[in-house]
């Protein structure tokens, strides 16, 4: 299946996440547009010093009265221009098609840098909203804040913004697939999908398995639909059909124990491994070994509390009462939203 077609299938599978982000952008566009409209006219009655009457001339400063409203309702040109730029940036994102969620990496480039660039580009939605708010309140710094309108990467996002994180689909050559560098982005509700092209290490995403992160390696695009349903961070790699990649899922919502969370559908043989780009056979073997180990350990390990707030529902028999209590407490504490 051509890469472009696979990307379309991935975008289709991620539609829920896409719509969530698009909806937030559309709301922001409306709010900033309304703010621009309001700032063209003063709030309330247009100030007219004469309208206050003769008494006011003795006890008030009509000029100050008028100036107050001009100052209050009509932004200074610099702030207004910044507000317009913020609106333009948001409107541009709002008008773009789903391809804006796709980032393509040339051979030899850094996967991490590409992901940061892609998220920084989409994160302009958050940057523009911030700039609009700062301009509205007169706290803007033109030089300091205008940059938010061209690049606003994840480290600048706040908790609420990370909860609205845009999904990103990355077309990547297998040779650049150093997945470990992606760990820093897996926070909030971030969804990353790697559409792998050509030769690739067989189990690169193993390095990203942590208790609260949904990790999927697959060759079936429809398998990616679960990413849109998962509330926490998720990363997936879609390998070409017929590739020697491992296929597995680490799903925190499946249960509290590793055995419940881990499902390994396909585990390639170690003897077939060869270096891929700068990724050595040994590194690939290590990832495969880790996958096999996790699979075996998971099967024998006791259930543990889920840190993403989703307690095991099907694993109730194996979960101890103390673990269930711990999971419940963690849910109440809403630790997932901290940060």
């Amino acid at each position: 299946m051509p890469s472009e077609q696979r990307v379309d299938l991935v975008l289709s599978a991620l539609q829920g996440s896409l719509e969530g982000f698009r909806s937030a952008v559309a709301r922001a566009v409306d709010e900033v547009r309304a703010e621009l409209e309001r700032r063209r006219q003063p709030a309330g009655v247009p100030p007219d010093p004469q309208a206050l009457g003769a008494l006011a001339s003795r006890i008030m400063d009509p000029g100050r009265f008028a100036g107050l409203f001009a100052e209050d309702s009509l932004l200074d040109p610099e702030a207004y221009a910044l507000l317009e730029q913020a609106h333009e940036a948001l409107a541009s994102l709002d008008a773009a098609d789903d391809r804006m969620f796709v980032e393509s990496i040339p051979e030899g480039a850094s996967l991490r840098d590409a992901v940061e660039a892609g998220l920084g580009r989409l994160g302009v939605a958050f940057g523009a909203a911030r700039v609009a708010e700062l301009a509205r309140e007169g706290r803007h710094r033109t030089n300091g804040h205008a940059g938010h309108l061209s690049h606003f990467p994840p480290p600048s996002w706040n908790r609420a913004e990370r909860g609205l994180a845009p999904p990103l689909v990355v077309e990547t050559p297998g040779a650049t697939l150093r997945a470990g560098a992606l760990a820093e982005f897996l926070d909030g509700a971030q969804k990353l999908v790697l559409v792998v092209q050509g030769a690739a290490p067989p189990a690169p995403l193993v390095r990203l398995i942590t208790p609260g992160v949904l990790v999927v390696q697959t060759k079936e695009p429809e398998e990616l639909g679960r990413l849109a349903d998962f509330e926490g961070p998720a990363v997936a790699a879609l390998f070409p059909e017929g590739s020697g990649a491992a296929c597995f899922t680490h799903d925190p919502s499946a249960g509290t124990g590793l055995a419940e969370r881990m499902a390994v559908e396909e585990l390639p043989e170690v003897s077939d491994l060869r270096p891929v780009g700068a990724i050595s056979a040994a590194q690939q073997a290590e990832e495969l070994a880790q996958l096999a180990s996790l699979s075996r350990v998971g099967a024998a390990a006791p259930a543990a509390p889920s840190t993403n707030g989703h307690a095991a529902s099907g694993g109730g028999d194996s979960a101890r009462p103390a673990d269930r209590l711990a999971a419940w407490l963690l849910r109440q504490a809403n630790l997932r939203d901290l940060g």
Partner: peptide, 25 residues
């Protein structure tokens, strides 16, 4: 000017709210 103009009864701008309190004033 004492009598002022009648209240603007044009369409309310999109997103405007009846108590859009300006944080400063």
């Amino acid at each position: 000017e004492w009598q002022g103009s009648p209240p603007d009864q044009g369409a309310v701008p999109d997103g405007a709210r009846p108590y859009e309190w300006d944080p400063r004033t």
